[in-house]
Design a binder for these strands. Sequence first.
DNA 1: TTGTACGCGTTATCAT
DNA 2: ATGATAACGCGTACAA
Lengths: 350, 350
Amino acid sequence: MVALSQLQIIWGCVLAPTLDELAALSGVSRATVSRVINGGPVAEATRRRVIAVLEQTNYRPNVAARVLASGRSGIVGVVFHLEPRLLFRDPYFSLLLHGVAEVLAQETAGMMLWLGNRTKQETLDRILGLRLLDGVIVTADHLEDPLVDGLMASDFPTVLVGHRREDLTANYVDVDNIQAADVVTTHLINLGRRRIGHITGTRSTVTAEDRLTGYLRAMKRAGLTDEDLIADGDFNRESGRECAEVLVDREVDAIFCANDATAVGAYDAIRAAGRRIPDDIAVAGFDDLDLALDLDPPLTTTRQYIERQGEEAARMLCQILADPEGSPRRSLLPTELVIRQSTTGGALGS
Amino acid sequence: MVALSQLQIIWGCVLAPTLDELAALSGVSRATVSRVINGGPVAEATRRRVIAVLEQTNYRPNVAARVLASGRSGIVGVVFHLEPRLLFRDPYFSLLLHGVAEVLAQETAGMMLWLGNRTKQETLDRILGLRLLDGVIVTADHLEDPLVDGLMASDFPTVLVGHRREDLTANYVDVDNIQAADVVTTHLINLGRRRIGHITGTRSTVTAEDRLTGYLRAMKRAGLTDEDLIADGDFNRESGRECAEVLVDREVDAIFCANDATAVGAYDAIRAAGRRIPDDIAVAGFDDLDLALDLDPPLTTTRQYIERQGEEAARMLCQILADPEGSPRRSLLPTELVIRQSTTGGALGS
DNA sequence: TTGTACGCGTTATCAT
DNA sequence: ATGATAACGCGTACAA
């Protein structure tokens, strides 16, 4: 047992102390110090002695050594493997990341971020090859996704944000896009609209397909199905504008857009064509981003608590790491139709 | 030397091969395999034999073991330690991250992301305590910043994005905010504006102070200084609106906003007060985000190539890691005044 | 309850 | 040019 002053001199702030050094300071063996840190059986008296030293040195375990010995780092991966333009022009991923980071900051030692700068196959190789991460959170947007396939095939602890129907054993956080799209489409039908167009999201993504499915389900139920009312968009403003131009020409009286960014483009096109919202054409989006409220008129849309999905995914991964056994964990978070003037304003408003 | 088929059977895709196993397969020692991988002196014939095995097994070194032995992981930290609302409501950081990720993806094994979920002191402790990162890229916005102070005090390889004048030994990427603010203010003066207001950014940040300094310099030179024309904002739309309301009351004929988000708020307030842009009040922003072009009228602003700053910072860090010696590296990137109708449109336009 | 000793997979320093 | 062998710092059986 050495006095604090001496201890400061020995290590200062420069050299990080090791278990061996802490052991020497507390007069016990390295194994005992390790047990104190990791919660092994230690006599109360010695534990207190060790803890005192621990605090004085503000000891941090060497992650590399810990991984080598035990296989666990406390570090998790977060994979947003998407086109950069999609990743950064829509607040969706920022919100998701925010939620994830919030929870992980409390529960883990750190977060490695993987973006779409490499092929999915290469990203997969690296993540598994590193043998450093305890688990990953991955956005699973695409129908075809070798990265998700690879993770599912391995037994690497994984939580998906979004999922495909064939991911049977996956742990995931998702929302019911089909149901939500059905609800908003039905809302438009109930308002008396009949020629309801849909601008889809990127067609290779799960969310785009699901929202389309929900739209079709509601339209079919009302006997309104018409293939001409569907335009393939890309989840962004530009495609929203282009698709809306087409739909305006086809004389729709409402448009359900696959997300809010698309709806902004639809506003542009509808305005440019000299039509009024919602009097001539009602518009609905999806996400309920901040901008939905700023639009004129404010946008009817489906709120999906993106940040909370991130939090939930992070929490789920932590649970899996704490208790790897058990059946797949699944969390279907609620959505909420937020009705604003873009569908109910104007003369035709209900 | 073992045939490929046998090799597959031995490890399948499940177990990651180790140096020892590769050595056994190629009929050389572990040390030689290591030399092949890390570029040591190896006879050409044996090198080829080893490389063949390397490719067949798609071997990935164990990062933890490598760190323990050599101290280098190939992983760098990226620290955006800011209020979450600032971090995610302005595309600035997304663009920066994009640039950083692009370069790091090619040069390094990975990227750990640190956001403002903990105190700066704690973030600093963790980063240094991990002993896993080769270096960090840090946004250095604040005048008072224990995180940056701590990194400067240590000899940990660090690149700052933005810097303070007292960071004498720092490696940094920055733009000349003072000069850029001077230029835009002078632009307004040259247009004949006399009561030119300034909405500052968050006053504890370097960029806010520097842009204010540049504004004051230009105003002083023109003999126009007036303390009443300065309103303290917060780099966001809301504060832009509030500050612009005040400035409109004080009968400014122009407003230089500390960033584009602030300018959007200023537009709101000016419109609400029934004034025209730029006829009654000219407006200029800073950043040249996409939205600057979408505003009506399009916003005069200073373009600062944010993404390129991220790329440059990443490149600089890689250089430092490759060659730790040498004087501090500094990179002052150019800015460009982009003149649009928010200053030169309307009847008064030059 | 506590200590000893080995192993994790690599790099690096020696001999050879 | 190559091969032993010793670190690197930690966790953990096993022995005491």
